[in-house]
Computed example of a mutant assay.
Amino acid sequence: MTLPVVAVVGPTGSGKSDLGVALAQRLGGEVVNADALQFYRGMDIGTAKLTPAERQGVEHHLLDVLDVTEEASVAAYQDDARRIIDGIHDRGRVPILVGGSGLYVRAALDRLEFPPTDPSVRERLEAELAEGGAAAFRERLRAVDPASAARIGDDRRLVRALEVHEISGRPFSAFMPRREYHRPTVQMGLAVDRDLLRDRLAQRVQVMVRDGLAEEVRSLADSGLREGRTASRALGYAQFLQVLDGSVTEAAAVEDTIAATRRFAKRQLTWFRGDPRVAWLDWQADGLVDQAVGLARRSGDLS
């Protein structure tokens, strides 16, 4: 029997990490991180990364694998996550995928193929676009990929679609993802009370500041945080870099971080609500862990 992947998804602040640990303990599993910002070494407070003690002896994978100067790659993550999931299965254990970065979750779970890229081809196409204009480019794309030509509205994606066709010989639209699992999966989401979550996120940011977020950002700035294309834009980190630069006050950075975190949680809910395969559990239900374990066992044929 092939053990399923158990995935725990939902918005930031909903309790995914704690549930992931509890499921791993009950099901004999190991956690695979699917939060793109928890890849980064040193980004601990601002990403609410579980401490080693909070992991309660459960093995966690794909935490602290990148320096802040490195750029996260969904395609690279897919390779790493699937290799790790295979290894967990080979040990007779259950992979517990935990995170709220929607595209990374799909990369790990779904039949999702990433189109090829070639910087030299892209650079040439960008020059041709600048010379010939978007209308001519759209006609070129319509000749080889009418579905993409009808859907794409901006110049950058026009270039990308023609780049993919030139490299692969396949239309860009052929690489669109399908909601089809790569291997057996049980996907559960934490359903939240939005008003309560808004309050919790505000409190969470305040606790992060109290616990030393500013000092963490200052230390990471010395390690190149500003040069990191992904890490430097992270919630809280971008705002507190501005504090270091003297362009905003700490109070303003806190308020901006709270507002941005709330917007991010709303986008996460929209993303995961759009997937009909997610089974939703009340984040504050009595016996939440028992419910989640029961769902995993019923859906995944786990003993």
Rank of each mutant, 00 (worst) to 15 (best):
residue 168 S to T: 11
residue 72 A to W: 06
residue 46 G to L: 12
residue 36 A to I: 00
residue 161 A to P: 00
residue 206 Q to N: 13
residue 111 R to F: 07
residue 141 L to H: 10
residue 234 A to W: 02
residue 27 L to F: 08
residue 264 F to M: 07
residue 264 F to N: 13
residue 56 Q to W: 05
residue 303 S to L: 11
residue 108 A to N: 12
residue 302 L to D: 00
residue 115 P to V: 02
residue 243 V to W: 03
residue 66 L to R: 12
residue 16 K to S: 13
residue 149 A to G: 10
residue 191 A to R: 15
residue 211 D to A: 05
residue 273 R to L: 13
residue 13 G to P: 12
residue 236 G to S: 01
residue 270 T to I: 04
residue 65 V to F: 08
residue 1 M to S: 13
residue 135 A to V: 14
residue 233 R to Y: 03
residue 253 A to D: 11
residue 31 V to A: 15
residue 205 V to K: 01
residue 99 G to P: 08
residue 247 S to N: 05
residue 290 D to E: 15
residue 2 T to D: 14
residue 80 D to H: 12
residue 180 E to R: 00
residue 172 F to T: 12
residue 68 V to L: 10
residue 84 I to Y: 11
residue 258 I to E: 00
residue 255 E to T: 01
residue 127 A to W: 04
residue 154 D to K: 15
residue 200 R to P: 09
residue 56 Q to G: 04
residue 103 L to P: 06
residue 209 V to F: 02
residue 86 D to E: 13
residue 188 M to Y: 02
residue 204 R to H: 14
residue 181 Y to G: 05
residue 190 L to V: 02
residue 174 A to H: 06
residue 104 Y to E: 10
residue 163 E to A: 09
residue 82 R to M: 09
residue 14 S to P: 06
residue 109 L to H: 11
residue 20 G to S: 07
residue 54 E to L: 05
residue 273 R to V: 10
residue 82 R to C: 10
residue 115 P to L: 11
residue 189 G to S: 10
residue 50 L to G: 02
residue 299 S to T: 11
residue 175 F to V: 03
residue 53 A to W: 07
residue 263 R to T: 01
residue 214 A to H: 08
residue 144 V to F: 05
residue 249 T to M: 11
residue 163 E to V: 05
residue 15 G to P: 12
residue 203 Q to D: 15
residue 236 G to V: 09
residue 9 V to W: 12
residue 187 Q to Y: 04
